[in-house]
């Protein structure tokens, strides 16, 4: 780990002012960069891997952004709220998709350190990215190629990717958030803006070297999460029963009226270079009579153009089955 300076800020303005480069959005950080650190579970991990070497860390974990409030039908969650605290909050007790996306992630210890702001900004787990000795990685070294294409890619993405980079966005929470139409409030040197979580991340097939759209000094201050009038659920499929990222996952929000899918939103995890909103599946589902056959059709539509390499061959099929299962369980359709 390269030497760095550590400072802690007490207010949002000071935080924004401290960060003058856009390193938080870039895939790599160097000694000239100043970046935020919250729980540190991504930031320090990547520094320990030797992939990141920022010159200054600005600790934002103690900013007064630790409240959860219900504002009409929208949950407003401070960026410094930990995953554990949000999962335990009474406001999410009935919002299964959100609660389970948190409780099925990482471990109890990590959840009591990690913030929701940091979670949505976590970086890919691709081990070629995370080992600076690997020379072929377009994310770290644009133009160098992608070692994962012919290498070990079992945990890699098949949507929003091409042969340039197949890195997965591994957040469970972010998949729930895009499915719930959540927004992030940002505060920057020039004031604030609010954008959909769905617009926060940059797809690998667009620019592998950039992970999100934060401008220099922009701080995530809050998540705004509309609470839907629908049933929801999150299913995570992984080899190990716990403490593992998703091989595939599905977030489903659905309201069935007289057998018809009056409202439906679907997200997929473990398969996208960004938290994946399954809009193609939704198109097939919306306003239709809920049935297993329809779910199969919707899942197939979403995965139709998946980009696979030998290591990810099985993923579209597993993702299809994961989605069908979760649509079935949330809608309680039996045939």
């Amino acid at each position: 780990m390269h030497p760095f300076t550590y400072t802690r800020v007490d207010d949002v303005e000071a935080a924004s002012a401290a960060v003058t480069t856009d390193a938080v959005s870039r895939a790599v950080q160097g000694p000239d960069d100043t970046v935020f650190i919250a729980g540190g579970t991504t930031q320090l991990d990547l520094m320990r891997d030797g992939v990141w070497s920022p010159g200054t860390l600005v600790d934002v974990s103690r900013l007064p952004l630790a409240d959860v409030e219900l504002d009409e039908d929208t949950l407003v969650v401070g960026a410094a709220v930990t995953m554990a605290d949000l999962a335990r909050h009474e406001a999410v007790a009935d919002l299964d998709v959100l609660r389970d996306s948190l409780l099925l992630a990482a471990s109890p210890q990590l959840r009591s350190m990690a913030t929701v702001g940091g979670n949505v900004l976590q970086r890919t787990r691709c081990r070629y990215f995370r080992d600076p000795e690997v020379t072929q990685c377009n994310k770290r070294r644009p133009g160098s190629g992608c070692a994962a294409i012919e290498g070990t890619a079992r945990t890699h993405a098949v949507l929003g990717v091409d042969a340039g980079c197949i890195a997965v966005h591994a957040s469970d929470l972010a998949v729930a958030l895009v499915t719930l139409d959540a927004r992030v409030r940002l505060h920057g040197p020039d004031g604030g803006r609010t954008i959909p979580v769905a617009d926060l991340h940059v797809r690998a097939d667009v620019d592998p070297a950039r992970d999100n759209v934060l401008a220099a000094g922009e701080l995530v201050t809050h998540l705004e999460i509309p609470v839907p009038d629908a049933r929801t659920g999150y299913l995570k499929v992984r080899d190990r029963a716990s403490y593992e990222f998703a091989l595939t996952s599905a977030a489903v929000v659905a309201r069935v009226e007289d057998g018809i899918l009056a409202h439906v939103a679907v997200g997929l995890g473990g398969v996208g270079s960004v938290p994946w909103r399954a809009t193609r599946a939704e198109e097939v589902l919306r306003g239709q009579r809920a049935s297993l056959a329809l779910f199969e059709q919707a899942a197939a539509a979403e995965l139709a153009d998946a980009f696979t390499v030998p290591g990810t061959d099985f993923k579209p099929e597993l993702a299809r089955r994961t989605l069908v299962r979760q649509l079935r369980d949330v809608t309680e359709v039996t045939a």
Binding site: I37, G40, T41, L44, D59, P108, Q109, L110, S112, M113
Partner: peptide, 22 residues
């Protein structure tokens, strides 16, 4: 791995991914 688990202000956390400064 969790081997480094300690309590900080009563919560269980991983001391390896916590900076001393934090």
């Amino acid at each position: 791995c969790g081997a480094c688990t300690v309590h900080v202000d009563g919560r269980r956390v991983l001391s390896c991914l916590t900076l001393a400064a934090q």
